[in-house]
Design a protein around this nucleic acid. Structure first.
Lengths: 237, 237
DNA sequence: CGTTGTCCAGACAGGACGTCTCGTCTACGC
DNA sequence: GCGTAGACGAGACGTCCTGTCTGGACAACG
């Protein structure tokens, strides 16, 4: 049902690639910049003309996929950098060169996956599109292996302050901005009439769904529908 | 505001107790059985008449308090069994003798604290008492140091299957049973009229509150009030 | 063709884990 | 009383993962 996380074709490891790099580099490309792509000096636009060898994109993808797979198979508790390196066929140092922690690896995969699977419908906002979005979100978080990454990061953010900061800055913040936009537009268009503010309303909807997922319960469609109806539909009295 | 988690008087460590044990043993007693109290053979009611020395209750409390304090101070990520042992003035083996993991320690403190701070009002259920309960819950989870334990355990349950099982069996399950009772009685009395089932309704209410706490947002009273009103009050149409 | 930077491979110290073995002390049974 | 069973503090032990740091091979660019 969900054959593969993060893209269609994926090599099992990054090893045994003679000529791989060039083909991959142009064929796939980078959808998301990834952790380090934005870290070093975003202020200086024209950096060094890049001497030396360039980053191996196959290795980057192998790491992302390995992390994803290992999380789905054994859970976050068993996820170690060494295991990721082994599975990806990559040296440990290659991982530490580009990511400061396994959390940033997961964050990279999560951003890529959720942009692909559950984009926020900011254009043409309507009660119907909001409902569809939340149904998709519920499905993502409850049944999609990639949704487990989201749950794992929410969890890890409770344990580590650095994770919390990064998770907010890179994922929750931007996503919530789009959700707020979606809800605000729909409200202004008279499509919905929430009694709470945009953030509180989204938290109530998303929170209920996420909590069900966190506690291992299923998320029947009727739950989402009723919730949306109760919180977004204007009351008669 | 919340001077101490888990009881009033607490020694800093368990060491230096000459004569401590006897006094503590009778004075404080055990509110909750704790992890191991129910584990070994609940089938045989009359066990061995207990030769040897008995369990040191001061050590038990010192461990519970140390875990609580360390979690509040440094977060779950920095919480180690060794650190708990050091802080409690207790040998590591003493901890492993009674708890299989630090999670069970936290579970012991959580059960004790939430029974004390946010009991579920199953008697005399009313819309008003439900609202008060949820306000208290929101306060507990957002501002009480003991509430951090709940968040940490929800988080750890995502990372480890064993934690998830234990957390459900010992905390979420029993608590939800009482909450369901509360809601069902209030519904039968005509006090409230949820459109969703008891579990789904509670998840929507609790989930929204927990999600705010998990993402570090405050939980204004108006949010809880409106949520309760939207989900529990009968709709006119 | 040399410089630069990435890659794999592996060594390394540090820390936490969970187990184990001591010696001490205390409650209970005989 | 006295012996024994069990809890306790102290600390050693092997294992695993961490994050850093080498070395040597390779590829891109000037």
């Amino acid at each position: 049902m969900f054959p593969s996380v993060l893209g269609a074709d994926r090599p099992d490891t990054a090893s045994g690639r003679s000529g791989w790099t060039r083909r991959l580099g142009t064929a796939i490309g980078r959808v998301v910049g990834g952790y380090r792509a934005r870290m070093p000096a975003a202020s200086s636009p024209s950096r060094r003309p890049h001497s030396g060898n360039r980053r191996d994109d196959a290795a980057r993808l192998a790491v992302l996929h390995a992390a994803d797979d290992l999380l789905a198979e054994n859970g976050f508790g068993a996820l170690t950098v060494e295991a990721i390196a082994r599975r990806a066929g990559v040296a440990k140092q290659t991982i530490y060169r580009w990511w400061p922690s396994k959390v940033e690896i997961l964050l990279d995969t999560l951003i890529e996956d959720s942009d692909k699977r559950i984009p926020v419908p900011v254009e043409k906002p309507s009660a119907e599109s909001i409902l569809r979005y939340l149904r998709g979100f519920a499905r993502f978080v409850a049944r999609d292996p990639a949704g487990k990454v989201l749950l794992a990061l929410i969890a890890e953010a409770q344990h580590d302050a650095g994770t919390a900061k990064s998770f907010h800055q890179r994922y929750l913040g931007p996503r919530r901005a789009r959700e707020r936009e979606m809800l605000t537009r729909a409200t202004e268009a008279g499509e919905v009439a929430p009694r709470l503010g945009a953030d509180a309303t989204m938290d109530a909807l998303v929170g209920a769904i996420v909590y069900r997922a966190l506690t291992g319960s299923s998320i029947p469609r009727g739950l989402v529908d009723t919730l949306v109806d109760d919180l977004l539909r204007p009351r008669a009295d």
